[in-house]
């Protein structure tokens, strides 16, 4: 897998410094996901499942704690986070499972000057800048031009079979 991960095409070279071990970053991302596109599990303890507690840190994406940044939710309209995001309480399994989730959110473009294609479904990720804004967390690329809010004017879904809103549906969002 590391060979695959090393080949991760990245948008912003600055974000992935040449010495940065891409596989470590990618592993970190996939550590909390059953597959690319699954809701990430919660990598910290949830002391109290109170209403609005998650939003306190995850609405702005500006909160840093012990060197980690709380990712900004791309779907703030959904307020009951533990409907989908789970906190693992153990590493153990009930029975082994052979499902291996794939990290397929790798960028592609037609030629070096072309805009990157969108490699993931857009459902519940309509607000591109929530993840690709100035507080993007590696290895998710940050936009070099967040002021151009309407991303799908140039960036198209990678395949017509990808589910989610079609091109032409506004998918930008305020920076």
């Amino acid at each position: 897998m590391s060979a695959l991960r090393c080949a991760l095409p990245v948008t912003i070279a600055v974000l992935l410094a040449a010495c940065a071990p891409a596989d470590v970053q990618a592993t970190g991302r996939m550590d909390t996901r059953a597959y690319d596109g699954a809701p990430p599990t919660i990598p910290h303890s949830v002391e109290e499942l109170g209403r609005g507690n998650c939003q306190a840190c995850h609405t702005s994406g500006h909160v840093e704690w012990e060197g980690k940044r709380a990712p900004r939710t791309p779907h703030p309209e959904h307020v009951r986070c533990t409907q989908c995001h789970l906190e693992p309480l153990t590493d153990e399994l009930f029975r082994p499972n052979t499902f291996v989730g794939e990290a397929w959110a790798t960028g592609q473009r037609q030629h070096p000057a072309a805009p990157w294609l969108i490699p993931h479904p857009l459902t519940m990720r309509e607000n591109c800048l929530a993840c690709h804004g100035e507080h993007a967390i590696e290895p998710v690329p940050a936009s070099t031009h967040p002021e151009r809010a309407r991303c799908t004017q140039c960036h198209l879904p990678v395949a017509e079979s990808a589910p989610g809103p079609r091109p032409g549906v506004p998918t930008g969002g305020s920076p």
């Binding site: 990290a103 397929w104 037609q110």
Partner: peptide
């Protein structure tokens, strides 16, 4: 990539949604 078949570099892993 469906829209531009064959344009993905050969070293790119076949992991896209396409």
């Amino acid at each position: 990539v469906v829209t531009v078949p064959g344009c993905a570099p050969s070293s790119t892993p076949d992991l896209s949604l396409s």
